[in-house]
Amino acid sequence: MSTDMKTTPGTTATDAVVVATDLTKIYGEGDSEVRALDGVSVSFPKGQLAAVMGPSGSGKSTLMHILAGLDQPTSGSVLVDGTELAGLNDQKLTLLRRDKIGFVFQFFNLLPMLTAKENIELPMKIAGSTPDPEWQATLVEATGLGTRMSHKPAELSGGQQQRVAVARALLSKPAVIFGDEPTGNLDSKTSSEVLALLRRAVDEFGQTVIMVTHDASAAAIADRTLFLRDGKIVRDAGHLSAGEILDTIKTLE
């Protein structure tokens, strides 16, 4: 993780975790055709926290879904940790998600009947593997939940729930973590706790995070900021301050 990487967006690096080439996604046909993505090529190196920004309807979610293998592009290719997603059947995609991808959702998406701890362990349970206890302890510590680990989601605040969700995504040490507006449902204080955890995941644990966000202050913690408009990447910058981000957004709208 050279500082170099934090400032220069890598596009051809061999250690890229996610590589997208010439992605297009077209919804509908004829008159109602919508080009949600229109020739997007982008690559994310390991150990980077990238923020994807853009006005509503610019294709942010579509891009993330396709990068994560949740949706198929109309054309173009996606490589996740060296695996080409095109042509993978459901079973292979499932295994890929299990091993290589972590998710953090806007609406936490924790199971209400499980405790925080159990929610964190859930993906490993599903995969039938046992988490590394040391790693788990580290993550539990990182969430700062302490004794609240045995509480059900309903008894936790939004920020706490989202930190549980981040820990859940981290436990299996995936190649990349995707976040769709991970702070979209939080106030600024709890937002910053969650963002700090994501930052730590990258800096200390060497994780790769790609998040879609609306929030300039969230994007300001990223190593790299991508701006989308009308399905195209219109700016691919390194770390930007909140002010710089807001300026860029203004020019886009």
């Binding site: 459901d90 299990r98 998710f103 998406n109 599903i126």
Partner: peptide, 16 residues
């Protein structure tokens, strides 16, 4: 629906 979808994103297979 949402719960099952979430389980699928975190690696649950159809059989599971």
């Amino acid at each position: 629906t949402r719960e099952f979808a979430m389980l699928r994103t975190i690696g649950a297979s159809r059989r599971q």
